[in-house]
């Protein structure tokens, strides 16, 4: 059981408010959609949820089985976005194993291989990421976000750079995540996530 609670979240940038006073509560097996026009702060909002950006005010609280988690929150989160970069000089498999070792979790190369097969990169697992196309990199990011089985999966523009086959895989991944924990999707394309339990609309906010 995982809970994600956002209270009175605000972020300013160059003393200009991007959004303020956003509150939402998401529980296990629920989805959250974040919408808003370009520049409305979707990426900023999901980065704050992912704990890589500190809000100007307000709180993001993650609790597991009713207990509020204080540290190592990054181990509960998987994050995919077009602006996230993987390590170019390492191979696809090394990148996944790096994720596990940095998280101080057991390094499991069979799991990594399975996951790479899942995103149809099985044949390229020993190639350096710098040789990948942008679509392949995007698919690798899904494997990268899922390798530690996070209860919260945050996707920013989930379908960018993907072909039809990739989109199918991602839909499958999103569906599985809905059964397993929390899914957060930031997108302008309403077909990405048609059914959702909660929505944050950032457009038109000060």
């Amino acid at each position: 059981m995982i809970d994600l609670e956002v209270t009175a979240l605000a972020k300013t940038f160059n003393r200009r408010s991007i959004f303020r006073d956003i509150s939402v509560k998401v529980q296990s097996a629920q989805t959250l959609r974040v919408i808003g026009q370009n520049g409305a702060g979707k990426s900023t909002f999901v980065k704050i949820l992912a704990q890589v950006l500190t809000p100007t005010s307000g709180k993001v609280k993650i609790s597991r089985d009713g207990r509020v988690m204080k540290s190592h929150l990054h181990n509960l989160i998987g994050f995919v976005s077009p602006y996230m970069q993987l390590y170019d000089e390492f191979t696809a498999e090394e990148n996944l194993l790096l994720s596990l070792s940095l998280r101080a979790q057991t390094v499991d190369s069979t799991a990594a291989k399975n996951l790479l097969g899942r995103v149809s990169l099985g044949g390229r697992s020993n190639d350096q990421v710098r040789t990948f196309s942008s679509g392949m990199k995007q698919r690798l990011k899904y494997a990268f976000a899922l390798i530690h089985r996070p209860p919260i999966l945050i996707l920013d523009e989930p379908m960018s750079n993907l072909d039809t086959e990739g989109i199918g895989t991602v839909r499958q991944i999103m569906k599985e995540q809905q059964d397993r924990g929390i899914l957060v999707v930031a997108t302008n394309d309403h077909s990405d996530l048609e059914k959702f339990d909660h929505q944050v609309d950032l457009s038109g906010r000060p």
């Binding site: 890589v52 990054h74 602006y83 996230m84 970069q85 390590y87 940095l102 998280r103």
Partner: peptide, 16 residues
């Protein structure tokens, strides 16, 4: 420069 700070932030605690 390579834009991997975000990735590293997602993977590890600042202290590590």
């Amino acid at each position: 420069e390579r834009g991997t700070s975000l990735t590293l932030q997602l993977l590890s605690t600042p202290t590590a």
